[in-house]
């Protein structure tokens, strides 16, 4: 039953039981990693121990918290987060907006879809050097632009699908009420598109961080994760490089979880359907 499933997941014990296998695997992998590095005496520049990465992380935390000190790692994380987030908002907002405008005229959306699908298969990241030329290599806008373009197409494609793939009899119902196009859009097409949009946003949340970090590999200000990783790696300070990779992962996963949370709050009907299925 939907209700039984939902309440089991909601109770703290049920939740713990639900996530326990995942947590166990995570702990197991980290332990195995530590033991393998020790057992085979792997050089730290090949693969640092998780404990080394963690102590470097704690060192950065103490720098970050100490007055008068600065932690480049945390500054980098903040800068990269804002690039990813800005690009996400611009790209997803633009994708939804263009989808809404083109879906107003079926011919326009049908004509633009093949281009959007083609553009979606282009490795947008290859434009990073060009964006660096356009906006300036140290300007966050150059990274935001890349992120925005990367997330724009999947968002637009999915939104157009959601707006147009409406159940025929649900449309007939509106027709039988002689509903205005505005009502059909607001009360049928947009709610119908929400699940499509959020599945695009979830993909986009992961893509935006990947886009920002990889775009920074092509150059950017010192205090960004992509530049930090390349510089520490070429200086053979792998504990630092790995700590930055860990930060990027944490930001990416948190971003994804926030989108997931908003989705569930906004669409209780859909989340429940998924839980029971």
């Amino acid at each position: 039953m939907a209700q039984a499933g939902a309440s089991a997941a909601a109770s703290p014990r049920g939740r713990l039981g639900y996530y326990f296998p995942t947590l166990a695997i995570a702990v197991g992998v980290i332990l195995a990693w530590e033991i393998l590095v020790l057992a085979f005496d792997i050089q730290q520049f090949l693969l640092p121990k998780p404990s080394a990465i963690f102590s470097e992380f704690m060192h950065q935390v103490s720098l970050w918290l100490a007055p008068g000190e600065r932690s480049i790692l945390f500054e980098s994380s903040g800068a990269t987060f804002w690039e990813a987030f800005g690009g996400f908002i611009i790209g997803c907002g633009g994708g939804v907006l263009v989808a809404l405008i083109t879906s107003r005229w079926t011919i326009v959306s049908e004509a633009t879809m093949p281009f959007a699908i083609a553009a979606n298969s282009v490795p947008i990241i290859a434009f990073a050097p060009i964006m660096n030329n356009w906006f300036g290599i140290t300007n966050p806008a150059s990274k935001m632009a890349i992120v925005a373009i990367i997330v724009f197409f999947p968002t637009m494609i999915n939104t157009v699908r959601g707006l147009t793939l409406v159940d025929a009899s649900q449309l007939e119902l509106m027709r039988s009420y002689a509903a205005a196009p505005r009502d059909i859009l607001l009360k049928l097409r947009i709610p119908n598109a929400l699940p499509y949009m959020f599945s695009a946003f979830r993909v986009a949340s992961a893509l935006s961080l990947i886009g920002a970090v990889v775009a920074e590999f092509f150059g950017g200000p010192r205090a960004t994760l992509g530049v930090y990783i390349t510089q520490e790696a070429s200086a053979f300070d792998f504990a630092k490089a790995w700590t930055a990779i860990m930060m990027a992962s944490i930001i990416g996963i948190s971003f994804y979880l926030v989108v997931l949370y908003v989705e569930r709050r906004l669409m209780p009907w859909h989340a429940s359907l998924r839980d029971s299925g």
Binding site: Q170, L173, K187, L188, M267, H270
Partner: peptide, 9 residues
Amino acid sequence: FQAATLYEW
């Protein structure tokens, strides 16, 4: 209609 066609949201 033959099917209820409620809006699930």
